[in-house]
């Protein structure tokens, strides 16, 4: 029971990070129907931006953890947004109207480019950041096994919740959100009604990248180590989350993320840690094959 509660906490923490990345996949898929294969690598780029910003702030002598965190959050969000914007502009926008698989192949190219760009610029070694937020709350203790909720986990869950609330407000209550949802339903009709579709798509990518940036920063804080190849597996897991929740559905992405996080931690705790990625990939295959519309998605009707 104690182990169960502890794993539940760990799983929800991990799941929040996956959920944040998954929103980027699901929004892009919803609006232009492509799998943004490079999203995981945009996430990885953001972890490096966060890492270097932290080091820079330390070098400048800012010692307050809260201030540093806030500054790094803003810098990472802004710079990753620029990456999201540029990637869409250079690699995806010219391909609208090209053949079916062109955007996916281009996205794979971007993914390879980004991970190797970071490898060339920063080297292939793992980069470790000294832990800055230690300690935590002990929830309860029995037979010498303490169930703890670390400050990092509290921070991750709090940031994720605040961000998701803000994001929900943005999509449901603002003009941009209305335009975004309109483009998702019918791009041509939205254009006829005077919505700048290109701008909306651009903003969608930017928004996805911003959420990935937050996820990147939290990931860096949680694990303390990043490497240039860290985009692939979290990316695939977040994509799994998006598919599991029903691709195109925003609440679905968050729920999917939490489920994937829980499955991963419970699998590692009760079965085998070596096969945890196999579990994630298997879920991806099983969901895509047997329920491609996911938990909350709508079934796709192909029109001729």
């Amino acid at each position: 029971m104690d182990v169960f509660v502890q794993q539940l906490i760990n799983g929800l923490t991990l799941g929040s990070i996956y959920g944040l990345i998954a929103i980027g996949y699901t929004m892009v898929f919803g609006i232009i129907g492509m799998v943004n294969f490079a999203h995981g690598d945009v996430f990885m780029v953001s972890t490096f931006i966060a890492l270097i910003s932290f080091l820079g702030l330390t070098a400048l002598g800012i010692s307050s953890v809260a201030l540093a965190f806030l500054l790094v959050l803003i810098v990472t969000m802004a710079l990753t947004a620029l990456w999201g914007f540029s990637v869409e502009r250079i690699a995806y926008r010219p391909l609208r109207g090209s053949f079916r698989l062109a955007p996916l192949i281009s996205a794979i190219g971007v993914s390879i480019f980004l991970s190797n760009f970071v490898q060339v610029a920063q080297g292939a070694r793992n980069k470790a950041l000294p832990s800055m937020l230690d300690g935590g709350l002990t929830l309860f203790e029995r037979d010498g096994y303490a169930v703890t909720l670390s400050y990092k986990q509290i921070l991750i869950m709090a940031v994720t919740s605040v961000l998701l609330l803000g994001f929900w407000y943005l999509v449901q209550r603002t003009p941009f959100g209305r335009a975004q949802r309109a483009c998702e339903q019918d791009r041509k009709m939205a254009a006829l009604l005077g919505i700048d579709v290109d701008r909306t798509i651009s903003l969608t990518f930017v928004l996805g990248a911003v959420l990935a940036a937050v996820a990147g920063l939290l990931y860096l804080l949680y694990y303390g180590v990043v490497s240039f190849s860290d985009g692939f597996v979290p990316g695939v897991k977040a994509f799994t989350a998006a598919v599991l929740g029903g691709i195109g559905s925003l609440p679905g992405a968050v729920i999917g993320g939490l489920i994937i996080g829980l499955i991963e931690t419970f699998w590692s705790a009760y079965f085998s840690i070596e096969y945890k990625d196999v579990a994630a990939f298997s879920i991806l295959a099983i969901v895509l094959i047997f329920m491609p519309s996911g938990l909350l998605g709508r079934a796709e009707v192909e029109k001729v």
């Binding site: 690699a91 281009s106 190219g109 390879i112 480019f113 190797n116």
Partner: peptide, 17 residues
């Protein structure tokens, strides 16, 4: 060789465009 994959990625994008 370090730049090989970097160019691969770029070439894939350029090719699609």
């Amino acid at each position: 060789n370090e730049f090989r994959l970097l160019l691969f990625g770029l070439a894939m994008v350029a090719m699609m465009i």
